[in-house]
Design a protein around this nucleic acid. Sequence first.
DNA 1: TATGAAAAGGGGTTGCT
DNA 2: AGCAACCCCTTTTCATA
Lengths: 158, 158
Amino acid sequence: MSSDIDELDAKILNLMQADASLPLNELAEKVASSRSAVWRRVQKLTEAGVIKKHTILLDAPKAGLGVLVFAQVKMHAHSRDSLPNFIEKVRNFPEVIECHTLMGNIDFIVKIRVRDVQAYEEFFWNRLSQIEGVREISSSIALTAVKDTTELQVMPTG
Amino acid sequence: MSSDIDELDAKILNLMQADASLPLNELAEKVASSRSAVWRRVQKLTEAGVIKKHTILLDAPKAGLGVLVFAQVKMHAHSRDSLPNFIEKVRNFPEVIECHTLMGNIDFIVKIRVRDVQAYEEFFWNRLSQIEGVREISSSIALTAVKDTTELQVMPTG
DNA sequence: TATGAAAAGGGGTTGCT
DNA sequence: AGCAACCCCTTTTCATA
């Protein structure tokens, strides 16, 4: 399950999250190991699915998506059947960055990035609120990002 | 501001977000351009800060962080002075992945990843709720991730 | 000034010890 | 697990329009 991560794996993962463009020899040096050893660890971690992908992170406003919204969505109580449709729709909206089901009275929390407030209004009325089974949406515009990372603090297993 | 992104830039950014390990020649082929042209675009976009960093994304449960929590934090109304301290603390908690200030009655939304529910209880009581000025915390454990990406749909400016 | 080609350098990959 | 050789990709430079 937590695919047996030892201290070396943890160090590698933490460094690569901070900067995936770090050359293999520098990485090896920082973790006090050799190129090949580190390279094989990375292979294993990728095959095991611990490393999901290599990507670049963009500055959202500079990429033309200056507005971040968190929407709390509640579904009609008797609309179990419309859930697969909701999920399908939400996955295909490029504006939706994340969507999670929550325990408690909120059914979904949805993280959305759009160009500006007008674009959100458009998205809200014509897209999100139009999905069958949606009962209530409470939208909050995010002001300042106090913290916004993708880095997980990986610790050795056990 | 939205650093003048043309169609070629947009294509490059979208492809690199999907897979940053894509070799330059394949990337060039996909966007119907040449290696050097694409390479210079990437340089420019990095210098302009549109591309913030290269990273790897981990499977959180496989990396030993199986529990995702969204916490809504409200501060005491008269505790303006304690905000810098709150921000500083939150930024230094490795469990906190994101924290945004919101318009409306919730002051902060905090996204947290921990090993298990016990780890969250520990984090909640000994860390988050101990920060000066915090009045109320409403924690929701996330069940299923309907969507969880970092990819922004980049469109040409204008 | 921007583009393409081609050389030079560095890093990823592999096999062997 | 480490070493070293190989090969491919990135990066620079140069020539061209």
